[in-house]
């Protein structure tokens, strides 16, 4: 739930507004997806005498808003402490999920004022209605992927597919996976060969290596990452690099696509050539 601070009828506390002098409302959000639950930990730091007092007596509450448009899920969790974990069943979430935090009025508050208001509001008092936002905290987006659901996709980030009107192969990086499209005839040949594990590396070299190379070249372009940053293939690749202690975004300029693809796919060209030699030997012997 993206919010703009300039729409509010009362002074707002947060990191991007300047309605207070020294006061602040900061939250830190951590999200962990286990087997069937999404655990959201919210740590809050708040500094404002009047709002802290209202929080203590329950007139002001900290809310953690979880929203997943794809599953029509939208819920406000009221936090009772400054460090709290909420749990959401992942059957309610799928794909992009937004978590936002707020400081809000749990009931009507008359004559609200603060000694720390900036000069423009100094001495003013406001009648705050239930549900009004008094502070905006951190907001994060995450992607909830189901890896164990029975119709989940295989974890691959590249697919070879059939294009009935294609005359030649083409690569598309604009979808959730990197896609290699083949004509019907070529796809049927691929389908048949892919059943034989001996051809795995050969097929990788012919189809998947160029696809990854194209993806890397596109990422290297100006604005390349922004174009695909929500796609599953980019997020998976980014996470893979993170797990290996690397930062794809920072490194992308210096990445050499052909060599990087070989490393990523564990030398498919070399292994493919070896396999082809073995298949040739087998055929000669028989």
């Amino acid at each position: 739930m993206k919010r703009r601070s300039n729409y509010y009828p009362i002074p707002l506390l947060g990191s991007t507004t300047d309605n207070y002098n020294a006061s602040y409302f900061k939250t830190n959000i951590e999200i962990k997806h286990d087997m069937s639950d999404v655990a959201i930990r919210v740590k809050t730091e708040m500094h404002n005498k009047e709002l802290e007092n209202l929080f203590k007596i329950g007139k002001v509450v900290i809310g953690c808003h979880v929203e997943c448009k794809q599953t029509c899920f939208r819920k406000m969790y009221i936090l009772s402490s400054l460090d709290e974990v909420i749990s959401v069943k992942d059957t309610f979430l799928n794909g992009k999920t937004e978590v936002s935090t707020f400081l809000m009025a749990a009931e009507d508050i008359n004559n609200f004022g603060s000694d720390d208001f900036i000069e423009d509001y100094k001495g003013l008092q406001f009648n705050v209605q239930q549900g009004m936002i008094l502070g905006i905290g951190h907001r994060v987006e995450c992607i909830i992927n189901k890896t164990y659901d029975e119709f989940s996709d295989k974890p691959s980030i590249c697919s070879v597919l059939m294009d009935l009107s294609a005359k030649q192969a083409r690569i598309d990086t604009s979808d959730q996976k990197i896609q290699v499209y083949l004509s019907k005839e070529a796809f049927n040949a691929y389908r048949s060969l892919s059943k034989d594990p001996r051809y795995k590396e050969v097929l990788y070299s012919m189809l998947i290596v160029p696809a990854f190379m194209k993806a890397f070249y596109e990422l290297k372009q100006e604005g390349g990452i922004e174009t695909v940053q929500d796609s599953r293939w980019y997020l998976s690749l980014k996470n893979y690099y993170l797990k290996n202690g690397r930062n794809l975004e920072a490194e992308i300029k210096n990445i050499e696509p052909y060599e990087e693809t070989q490393k990523l796919l564990q030398d498919p060209v070399f292994n493919g050539l070896i396999k082809l030699t073995e298949i040739g030997v087998d055929n000669n012997e028989s």
Partner: peptide
Amino acid sequence: SGTYLLDLY
């Protein structure tokens, strides 16, 4: 919903 968190109501 721009001013109030209606989710609270």
